[in-house]
Design a binder for these strands. Structure first.
Length: 210
DNA sequence: AAGAGGATGAACT
DNA sequence: GTTCATCCTCTTG
């Protein structure tokens, strides 16, 4: 029942890199923290996907297309892009690159770290298992993330969410590379190896088409 | 104004 | 492996 505050928040500079694919890899092993109603829940990022608005048909903002939904992706790196998928799942993305560069990293799975009992309650589960936080819709629900927070920054402890360095030196890991899930409509872009996960982690989602 | 489909997950057979 | 819940967004007319 303690709110650990040991990690340091990643600065905006981390998110301003124009290479969203590199950032997607660099986010593995970092800690995603959310804070709602004064209670923090957190998990280690173990699976990500990169989306690039300029030339990636799988990206909602392709090709640089502004709509009310994708507007948040045009913010500077270090903001959240959250949208509702299939009418019920809130998918959490991190905007990257300079302003007006609609790139984002989808967080697909985390390893629960903090206030797991709160996550279980939000998910209406009783047993801790990968089902708790494996998959973008699952982890968003576990962390209390809602589309109404789309466009919020991740840069301060006053934000609803942010990303920290892990509180202790994390062991080195290999990165598993694959194709993104559920983007078959994107033609050849669907074959891009832009899905990354921590090799061997049991907290990574089981994807159908990869 | 209307319709199709989606960066999913759970519960089935 | 298959079905389907559920609703917003975008495209088309």
């Amino acid at each position: 029942m303690e709110n650990k505050q040991t990690g340091s928040i990643l600065p905006q500079a981390f998110y301003l890199d124009t290479d969203v694919v590199a950032i997607a890899q660099n986010l593995l092993g970092k800690v995603l923290v959310t804070q709602f109603d004064g209670i923090q829940t957190a998990g280690l990022i173990v699976e990500t996907e990169a989306y690039r608005g300029a030339d990636d048909k799988a990206c909602h903002a392709y090709p640089h297309k502004r709509t009310p939904r994708t507007e948040a992706m045009f913010l500077a790196g270090g903001h959240a892009y959250i949208y509702l998928c299939y009418g019920m799942h809130h998918l959490f993305n991190i905007v990257t690159g300079p302003e007006n560069t609609p790139n984002a990293v989808l967080i697909r799975a985390i390893e629960p770290i903090q206030h797991i009992e709160v996550m279980l309650q939000r998910r209406q589960q009783t047993q801790v298992s990968p089902r708790l936080t494996a998959g973008p819709g699952a982890l968003a629900q576990a962390l209390g993330i809602h589309v109404s927070y789309s466009g919020k920054p991740l840069l301060a402890h006053t934000s609803p969410f942010w990303i920290e360095e892990p509180p202790y030196p994390s062991p080195s890991f290999d990165i598993q590379i694959g194709t993104r899930v559920g983007v078959q409509y994107a033609g050849t872009c669907a074959h891009r190896p832009w899905r990354f996960s921590i090799a061997g982690s049991k907290w990574v989602s089981k994807a159908k088409g990869s």
